[in-house]
Amino acid sequence: MKIGQICVKISGREANKKCVIVDIVDDTFVLIDGNVRRRKCNVKHLEPLDKVLKISKKASTAKVHEAMKKEKIEIIERKKKKVTKKVKPQRKRKVKNDGK
């Protein structure tokens, strides 16, 4: 498990997605990025492939995506969560009729 190694996540919500090892935390945890959210992941949940990318330690997501493009690895664009401001329904104020 070297830095830049391409592997496939085999468990969890992002299973079956390609990811790149960006940093090695200790012998059980690594930092991964790529088609998955950048987060710490257990080595057991990763299946290594033979390709290794040339990226620096703790490379940023943009750099990782660039390196993946070079290796012609398909990048899945993740939809950015649209921050929708919750518009409170204005309660119609009762019009006080003066009843003249």
Binding site: V8, I10, S11, A15, N16, E47, L49
Partner: peptide
């Protein structure tokens, strides 16, 4: 998991 590992 085993199915994905086989495919990979």
């Amino acid at each position: 998991r085993s199915k994905i590992i086989k495919e990979v």
